[in-house]
Each structure stands twice: as structure tokens, then as C-alpha cells.
């Protein structure tokens, strides 16, 4: 069983600076939803609200996992991960002085994940054979692309039902961006996840997205029900092509 997410009327910010204004967004079971927008529009803030790292000032964030509905507002990050929501933070944020293997095992701190460590580790190594070769290497000494693989694999080690990915393409060469996006698709199918992915790289993101939202200055400006709808859209042309 997969998970779904429903955010409605979300306001959030940092102290006096408000960033999100009444954001509403859905991720249905088994979907990959892209949250598109350029820098500084509130993508990461939205992600952090869902993960309990920023407390929203208004609105609700509701997940439904295996038929159980939970309001995430007010919960700690640890509790949210325990519910079955994995998070890949922006800029990868590995534990640089631990090995690849140790990084992955730390992803499985959640009690429900501990019994599945062997199976999940094997699947991660199957998707990223590179990591199996380098499991004893310190994570801090790896290339950006490899680090992104570790970050994705680490989030999956918690055996999540839903995965939030914040800007997987940041700091990667174009070829690696394409590969990373492909691997997200593979992982999503393998783990039967629902995915919410924040991304600036529009063309890469819509390759695997079922639907998408465009966020501008903390508002959802456009909601695209399919990749085509997103592709033929004026706001996107304006944002990305400058026309």
C-alpha cells in the first residue's frame, strides 16, 4: 500500500519573513508529483514544513498511510520519519566521516526499518551497483553524483511509503542529472512509493512526473494535470525561457 499527502492552505516563514502563502497541493497514491520553481520561491520551505523542520503558521498537512490519516503539523521530524516518510535533503547532506555502508545503515534507524535492512540494502545496491563497490569508502570523499546516490539510498533505507526529494539535480553535471532522475523512477517503482520532488530543472523533472505544480513567490501559480499540460504553459515559458 502506498501513501498520499494533502496540503491545504499552508502559510509558513522564518520569523517576520513569510515565504508560503496559502499553498495547497496533493500527492495521490503511487504518483510522482513535481514541485517546480526557480530559486527562492519556497520549494525547500514547503518540504521542511512537511518534515516538521519548520512549523507552519496556518494550514494543514495530512498524510494517509495504509488507510490511517495523520496531521503532521506539530509532529517532530523523527515521528514523521517513523510514520513512513523519507526525505532527501537539498545538497545531499551525507555524514562525510562515515562510510557509505554506515550512512545507509543510519538511514534505517527507524524501528520498522530494522527488520528490512538486508532486503533494502540489497535493492539499493542493485539500483546503484557503484555504491556496492564503494561501501567501505568515506561518503565525504565521493563525487557529487555518487553522493546523490547515497542520499537517495539512505532515505530509502528507512523503508518509507512516501519519499520527498529536495532538488536532486543541484550541483550535478547534466548527464548525471538525467541518470539521477531515471534512478528515482526505478526506486519509486521498486519500493511502490509516492514521490514529491522539488526541482528547478523543469525538462528533467517532467520526464518522470505524473503531475506538477509551479510555485512562484510562495503561491501555487499553476497546476498541471499531466506532463503535456506543464509543457505547454505560459508561466513556464516565462520562467524558464524568459519570454
Amino acid at each position: 500500500m502506498a501513501a498520499s499527502l494533502r496540503i491545504s492552505g499552508l502559510d509558513a516563514g522564518y520569523g517576520a519573513v513569510s515565504v508560503l502563502h496559502g499553498v495547497s497541493l496533493d500527492v495521490r497514491e503511487g504518483e510522482t508529483v513535481a514541485l517546480l520553481g526557480t530559486n527562492g520561491n519556497g520549494k525547500s520551505t514547503l518540504m521542511k514544513c512537511v518534515m516538521g523542520m519548520i512549523r507552519p503558521s496556518a494550514g494543514t498537512i495530512e498524510v494517509e498511510i495504509d488507510g490511517v490519516k495523520t496531521n503532521l503539523v506539530g509532529m517532530t521530524t523523527e515521528e514523521i520519519v517513523n510514520l513512513g516518510i523519507g526525505f532527501v535533503p537539498e545538497g545531499r547532506r551525507l555524514f562525510p566521516r562515515l562510510t557509505v555502508n554506515e550512512n545507509l545503515l543510519m538511514g534505517a534507524f527507524r524501528i520498522a526499518a530494522r527488520s528490512q535492512i538486508e532486503r533494502n540494502l540489497a535493492f539499493c545496491f542493485e539500483v546503484f551497483p557503484r555504491l556496492a563497490e564503494r561501501r567501505k569508502q568515506l561518503a565525504g570523499s565521493m563525487s557529487g553524483g555518487e553522493q546523490q546516490m547515497v542520499a537517495l539510498a539512505r532515505a530509502l533505507m528507512s523503508a518509507p511509503k512516501m519519499l520527498l526529494i529536495d532538488e536532486p539535480s543541484v550541483g550535478l553535471a547534466p548527464l548525471l542529472v538525467a541518470r539521477t532522475i531515471d534512478s528515482i523512477k526505478t526506486l519509486k517503482d521498486g519500493f511502490q512509493l509516492s514521490v514529491l520532488m522539488a526541482e528547478q530543472n523543469f525538462t528533467q523533472a517532467i520526464r518522470i512526473a505524473d503531475r506538477g505544480y509551479v510555485i512562484v513567490h510562495g503561491h501555487i501559480e499553476f497546476e498541471g494535470g499531466s506532463a503535456e499540460e506543464l509543457n505547454n504553459n505560459d508561466i513556464i515559458r516565462e520562467l524558464y525561457m524568459g519570454a
Binding site: M51, P89, F95, R97, L98, M106
Partner: peptide, 22 residues
């Protein structure tokens, strides 16, 4: 496991939280 948990806090506390480390 406790020691590796400590190390995740030392290396990157936010990432540790995001990975579900208490």
C-alpha cells in the same frame, strides 16, 4: 548503533533528523 548515531549528529544534525535518527 549508538556510536554511529552520535557520529551522524556530529557530521550533520539536520540530515540525521531527516534520516529518522532520534
Amino acid at each position: 548503533r549508538l556510536g554511529f548515531g552520535f557520529a551522524t549528529i556530529r557530521d550533520d544534525e539536520l540530515a540525521a533528523e531527516a534520516s529518522g535518527v532520534p
